[in-house]
Design a protein around this nucleic acid. Sequence first.
RNA 1: GGAAAGGUGUCCGAGCGGCUUAAGGAACUGGUCUCGAAAACCAGCGCUCUCUUAUCGGGAGCCGUGGGUUCAAAUCCCACCCUUUCCGCCA
Length: 426
Amino acid sequence: MLDLKRIRNELETIKAAMERRGEAEVDLDAVVALDEKRRSLLQEVEQMKSEQNAVSREIPRLKKEGEDTTEIMAKMKDLSARIKELDGDVAQVDSDLYEMMLRIPNVPHPDVPQGETDDDNVEVRRWGTPLTFEYEAKAHWDLGTELDLLDFERAAKVTGARFVLYKGLGARLERALINFMLDLHTERHGYQELMPPFMVNRQSMTGTGQLPKFEEDTFRVPQKDYFLVPTAEVPVTNIHRDEIIPEESLPLCYAAYTPCFRSEAGSAGRDTRGLIRQHQFNKVEMVKFTTPETSYAELESLTANAEEVLKQLGIPYRVVKISTGDLGFTAAFKYDVEVWMPSYNRYVEISSCSNFEDFQARRANIRYRPKEGGKVTFLHTLNGSGLAVGRTLAAILENFQQPDGSVVIPEVLRGYMGGVERIAVK
RNA sequence: GGAAAGGUGUCCGAGCGGCUUAAGGAACUGGUCUCGAAAACCAGCGCUCUCUUAUCGGGAGCCGUGGGUUCAAAUCCCACCCUUUCCGCCA
């Protein structure tokens, strides 16, 4: 959520920012008009309340002195009724304004490249060299099926489309990746491991920005109005909702594994084969809470932490700066890490590392108390995948496939795989 | 699912219609004392909105959430949420 005062005072700047995002539906003039209406109502009703309070303070004294208060009481009853009426109007305006504010996206950082789609994202660096195959490289869904690691058909029978059943060494490899990533981030990168609830309430989903705008992308549990987590970002960011954190404790760095559930509404027909786009997938997520001054430096290290996973695995990747058209609702700035995927013959997103600045902190009311006695202030939140596990497994199958149809296991994973060095057709 | 107790500021905790402008601690920030520190003492110290604004200052609201009663609600009533304990069920 943006700062209403900022919209009021820097209207043209914010308008330009929405323009940059290509957000035509955001009606900032309506927000400003409603804000003005709210403040004029407030002035009126607060003046009345002030009078009510003053008179109410007098009543006990008058009674004590034996004065007749029936006339005053009658007047105050009238005033009280008018206050109640106006309070109702204020509440209505407040809630309308809040609903509008919840649907306004974040202001992009000035360094975000201008663009309309992901084609306008800007590559910032590459690591590793994509392999050239002497033969036709197989896609991970074929490799996974042939090696009996992945079973899409039976997953469809058990549940439906866009689910997968991991089998044998496939399940083992998925689990090995989760453990490897968590160990790397907790032991080497200084994150605290968390295992949060996999369902969250509506307030949490609103706090991180999935709601109210993107409810159709979620899986909802109707009995309790809970939501299956679309990413660990939601439960982990919300653990500090409505809290004030001493600056000495910052930055707070958490790493968490969760399955992620997404309905992928509007993605019909895209990436229908394989592990790339599933209703349920595993992910290790990194989340940081920082001061405003350090958040961009922390974003660099967060991104480096995600990249380190791929460096250790030995999979070629690149990092791109996301353009305004591809930025996403909540982010002020975002890097994507993309792995080389031979079957796609291009780089595919495997991690998004975002700085939300104070956008989520405002929604979720997460603040910090400055060391030097300053005013309690909204902190900055960041997060990034470290990494999407299913896509990592897919990248391993494709990048480490051998001419005989087997797949070599990256060295760093072998300890997690009971020493298995290669998965071959039985 | 049933029963009981409870949710108060950064933390602990009192208050249960108008002597509350939310007591009292703790923490924190100044100051006194000290060679220095600790202790002690003195003072300051909540959040949100709003008016006026360079500041100072004024007003309103905030005691789990939302309604209601009343001239007046932390306090009374209703609904809901959460926590703890006990019972039931259960991996």
